[in-house]
């Protein structure tokens, strides 16, 4: 773990996690989309780094797709969605910002506790970043639960995806190529479906506050 490679992967994973925590800190969709874009770029860089050191061509492809799809294309689509159904700049989340951040920190500690047994088993030099990837997964789940704006929840879901991809990369140097592509396609499909759903929510309620969905039961 003293190797430069280990340190750099941990650095990359920390940046990815920090971008995830920024989703809890900043308000406003522009900041969230920027954080997601930065996270995907950092993730692509980490993938590229691992690809360089291990010489895996598949990881190169994964890195490029991450950069293109999640780093460039999706933010553009998200910005377009925001412009169309942006609505009010921010909706009060269920949990206020400072408390969310403290809970985020505690979730990272929890992720560390949960992942520690795996660290004992794995032999890869990149294993030190796995708790951070797990932390990102928990934090993204928390973002999805605690935010009210549908767009933010979508970004949380995409960050969750990033977390899973990072965990796979650090734990086993990536998953088999075909599985990786399948996951990407799933994500893209899911994203398009969510676009349609948000459009319908906006049409029905004139806002994308997810609380409004309660009114459907009346």
């Amino acid at each position: 773990m003293d190797s430069a490679f280990g340190h750099l992967t941990v650095l990359g994973s920390s940046l990815v996690l920090l971008c995830g925590l920024t989703l809890l800190w900043r308000r406003g969709s522009a900041a969230h989309i920027g954080a997601f874009a930065a996270q995907s770029v950092a993730l692509a860089a980490t993938a590229g780094l691992i690809a360089v050191v291990t010489g895996s061509r598949e990881l190169w492809v994964v890195a490029v797709i991450l950069l293109g799809l999640k780093g460039i294309l999706m933010p553009i689509l998200l910005k377009r969605m925001d412009r169309r159904f942006g609505g009010p700049r921010e909706l009060e989340p269920y949990v206020n910002t400072a408390t969310s951040l403290v809970i985020g920190g505690l979730l990272v500690v929890l992720a560390y506790i949960v992942t520690w047994p795996i660290l004992d088993v794995s032999r890869l030099p990149t294993r030190a970043g796995m708790p951070l990837a797990m932390g990102l997964i928990f934090v993204s789940l928390f973002v999805i639960i605690s935010r009210k704006k549908a767009l933010t929840q979508v970004i949380g879901f995409l960050a969750l995806e990033n977390g899973i991809a990072l965990l796979a990369m650090l734990g086993t140097y990536g998953i088999p190529f075909i599985v990786e592509m399948g996951v990407f396609l799933d994500a893209l499909m899911g994203f398009l479906v969510m676009q349609i759903v948000i459009y319908r929510i906006q049409e029905t309620f004139e806002s994308i506050d997810v609380e409004q969905l309660n009114r459907l039961s009346q």
Partner: peptide, 22 residues
């Protein structure tokens, strides 16, 4: 300001967690 301080708190928590790892 407490939100900013909460951010620095989380950074410190991360610093410790990562120090434990390494």
């Amino acid at each position: 300001v407490p939100e900013l301080l909460a951010v620095s708190f989380v950074l410190a928590v991360l610093a410790i967690t990562v120090s434990f790892l390494v």
